[in-house]
Design a protein around this nucleic acid. Structure first.
Lengths: 331, 331
DNA sequence: AGTGTTATTGCAACCGATCTCAGCAACCGA
DNA sequence: TCGGTTGCTGAGATCGGTTGCAATAACACT
């Protein structure tokens, strides 16, 4: 269990270490009997290759960084969860990098990962990704971004159709009789947040109603402020779309503290589909993003780009998840 | 930016590569002028050492695995957050390992980390930790567990005083006039969960009241079932202690769905002090664990054990966090 | 001046793989 | 029978550092 290197196995199997190496990493280059014999011997010894030595020589490791602004945010947590799984399945190990939104930190992570010969990285941004900055790094060309990227087609991305999602929310609310629908922006800075907001503005205008942006702040307190704003209005909307579930939670909480009940007094719908939402009070109606798919797809895109160099931009479909925070408009 | 190895720096500085190596990793062994010169040259070239090569030779890397059952659980997410920070500060990188409670998986992670020469690991368990199993691995003796460990003093641990926490909750509730206080167990299986439950049982008995365990299940639905049980009772308690915040959320949510309001109809107090609780509806009163401290301390303990071999068992003090889910008993 | 220490630095083996190149045997067709 | 392939394996350099040991320089002391 202590020091079994490739040489030990080689000796035990009576072959040269290069043959052992091939038996593992390029099976077709070794006579099948030899290979099986080697594998058997290795198995018996309980030998596995040193990923470190491999990485050093190959200049490619199996460590892949997942860069998120805040793992405490359940959206990123769910993402991290499915990504660790997806990574595992493919023999990678996820390295969690939490930036707290500090670009300097993510730079630091990039350098570190580059030094570790990470084959690629995944970035879930809190601010717009600066692709120019990315390219300063060796694997800048091998990064998948979980957000839309402006004016640079060379970075693979995976996102959810924001417009479709907002449309789903709006339609749902309309079908319940709501016509005056407010909006609280999410953690702004990302294209995704921007897109959702734009979609809201555009679709509301299209339906002939007046858009009511309760808050467009960029931090976690947007929800709280949005609710405050709502409470001060003379003629508040009867429903609120929150740009993401966390904001929706904050809105409902703040409303609740002022004695307003959801959905009886106001309907609130979120955007994310966090598992947590099912245990909120009330259970949150929301637009679900297929987070699990996003994780898997991000890794696939990265591998694909790594392989044939192709760059894809995947846009997934959101779906409506009706739970308990929206209800028929009561006059 | 491409291939700067230690030799490049050595040449540029006009010294042997071993001197460069020392300049970085054993400064006192190099004449200070030489060292500064080398460092300056390296700096100018933008050189940093390859952690891979270092790890390979030293048989010690800076990668440390954080093994958690579920990163989606905000408790573990908060833990992960503070730990990445603590790790960063000390020059380590956290590798996130999500087991989903599957022991086979955590075994897999251990082998992987062992192969990566991780200097130690941190385990935040969902089930009781099998220290015997741990010791099968090379760094089995270098693991810090964030839970109490039964009958094995050789593993450093960091925990929060469960009894004290439950006492805080009970006292708070008593001071509000509640005498009939129910309990919903948390994600059982850990010693921590067990300890909290035992403390509840013992302290309740001591105060002369009847313990009412609404649910002692081990999964995330304990809260929901606890609430159901509560609703079926002829003479339900007036307050509920939930073994952790997530369970408290579920309890409140389930109660809410049946038309019961917190804290007006029932008071509910959690245990964890998640940031999320502040945005719950209503904001959750809870017993706060110093999660940030736990993360830092876990790493300190690990380093300490790694250094002088000493094994500590740190028990931290919880504190009461009064928010909005508990209120005076109204007759 | 001669000898013993101590501080610095160079040398070269080593960590555990990968990979190019060369060697050798078997096989193929003319 | 012989040159030309093809298939498989061994040698040895290499990836980017670390480290024990030897060599040299510098300094202290009798």
């Amino acid at each position: 269990m202590s020091d079994l290197s490739i040489d030990v196995v080689a000796k035990a199997a009576g072959v040269h270490r290069s043959t052992v190496s091939r038996a593992f990493s390029r099976p077709e280059a070794v006579k099948s009997e030899t290979r099986e014999h080697i594998l058997r011997v290795a198995e018996g010894l309980g030998y596995t290759m040193s990923p470190l030595a491999q990485a050093l020589r190959r200049k490619t490791s199996t460590i892949i960084p997942l860069i998120v602004p805040d793992i405490t945010n359940p959206f990123f947590a769910e993402l991290a969860k499915t990504m660790t799984q997806a990574a595992d399945e493919r023999g990678y190990q996820l390295m969690l990098c939490v930036t707290n939104g500090d670009p300097a930190k993510s730079d630091g992570y990039f350098t570190a990962m580059q030094a570790m010969y990470a084959p690629f990285g995944i970035v879930a941004p809190s601010t717009k990704v600066d692709t120019e900055a990315l390219k300063r790094f060796a694997f800048g060309h091998k990064v998948v971004v979980i957000d839309r990227v402006e004016g640079d087609e060379s970075v693979p991305t995976v996102t959810v159709d924001s417009r479709k999602g907002i449309m789903l929310a709006l339609d749902h609310l309309h079908s319940l009789g709501h016509t005056s629908i407010g909006y609280v922006s999410g953690i702004a800075g990302t294209h995704t947040a921007q897109d959702r907001m734009d979609a809201y503005l555009e679709l509301t205008a299209q339906s002939g109603s007046l858009p009511v942006v309760l808050d467009s702040g960029s931090d976690l307190d947007a929800g709280t402020r949005g609710a405050e704003h709502f409470l001060e209005m003379d003629n508040p909307p009867t429903a609120i779309i929150a740009a993401n579930d966390m904001v929706a939670f904050a809105v409902i909480s703040a409303l609740g503290r002022s004695g307003l009940r959801v959905p009886d007094d106001v309907s609130v719908i979120g955007f994310d589909g966090l598992a947590l939402g099912a245990r909120f009070n009330p259970p949150l109606t929301t637009v679900r993003q297929p987070i699990a798919d996003m994780g898997h797809i991000a890794i696939e895109l990265a591998e694909k780009q790594n392989g044939d160099g192709s760059v894809d931009h995947i846009v997934l479909e959101p779906e409506l998840l009706v739970r308990g925070s929206t209800s028929e408009l009561r006059k």
